[in-house]
């Protein structure tokens, strides 16, 4: 009990506190950061339109949109798998699990081969007579990557809750005259909310801090905050600014998560009251 606690304090809380301290230190090339309690790095990030537009807005936009898209696509797949008879869910579920357990770098590699100019998607679009679209090294490419990586995290908890929905409830709704859509929105969807919340929270937290995807699919053109913190620290050697970006990103992700949970809780409660 004692050992794990000390371990977490020493290797998680101390480094995080250290990062906060670093973000409030002065930066001078060639010498280690000196703690002065300055907020200049935060001020630099949060007032410069360049950082706000390129890094902050890109990060928020891409992580929110990708989470919503992953939820829609993942929900369809999870719903289909959950509707299958139990003995036939195994193959599809295990493929989703395999996809989840393959390293992110490898999955991005596969996507890049598929999306690169002259690749399968490109050729298919040309074949269909569609105008040429640049996907790789654009925001669209990064978005596709974020959605692809996030889907398994959304699908798996949803299969669990959707398969647990009692069919008798759906039959009851249909017996009082509700059609398929009405039954879905009034019965199935509310019951699946815990799975929706669990999946989207993981997807959002992962995507807000995405590093490998913008790095390999954005070609340095699509700047997200996680990647910026990395470049600032390892390439520029500006640890204080990197730390300020990192702490800002952490707080941003926690605030958006809190707002999301608050909204879900409130709508869910009013929905229950109305029903």
């Amino acid at each position: 009990m004692f050992v794990p606690f000390v371990f977490v304090i020493l290797f998680f809380f101390v480094p995080m506190a250290w990062l906060v301290a670093t973000s409030m230190s002065t930066h001078e090339v060639g010498s280690p950061p000196v703690f002065t309690g300055t907020l200049e790095h935060y001020a630099r990030f949060w007032t410069d339109p360049f950082y706000l537009e390129t890094a902050l807005w890109t990060t928020v936009k891409l992580s929110v949109v990708s989470t919503v898209l992953a939820l829609i696509i993942g929900y369809v797949l999870a719903y289909y798998i959950a509707e299958l008879p139990a003995h036939r869910r195994g193959l599809l579920t295990s493929m989703v699990v395999v996809s989840l357990s393959v390293n992110i770098v490898i999955r991005i590699f596969g996507l890049n081969v598929l999306l690169m100019s002259g690749g399968a998607v490109d050729s298919a679009l040309t074949f269909l007579g569609m105008p040429k679209v640049r996907i790789m090294y654009t925001e669209l490419g990064v978005l596709i990557g974020l959605v692809q990586i996030a889907i398994p995290y959304v699908v798996l908890p949803l299969i669990g809750v959707l398969a647990a929905v009692d069919p008798a409830l759906k039959e009851a709704a249909e017996s009082v005259g509700a059609n398929k859509y009405k039954t879905f929105w009034a019965v199935t969807f509310p019951l699946s909310l815990p799975g929706v919340v669990a999946g989207t929270l993981i997807a959002f937290t992962l995507n807000a801090a995405a590093f490998a995807i913008p790095s390999l699919m954005g070609g340095g053109r699509v700047k997200m905050m996680g990647m910026m913190a990395y470049v600032q620290a390892t390439v520029q050697g500006n640890f204080p600014f990197a730390a300020a970006v990192g702490i800002s990103l952490t707080l941003l992700s926690i605030v958006i998560t809190a707002i999301y949970l608050f909204v879900i809780n409130r709508t869910f409660r009013t929905a229950r009251k109305a029903a």
């Binding site: 794990p4 977490v8 250290w18 996680g226 913190a229 990395y230 640890f239």
Partner: peptide, 27 residues
Amino acid sequence: ILTLSFMGPLLVPSIIFALALYSVMIY
């Protein structure tokens, strides 16, 4: 308190925790 301490790493993006651990260890 225990749950929060041990689940904390889930709240912080792993790349930022990595940056934190890296700066401490380099120092």
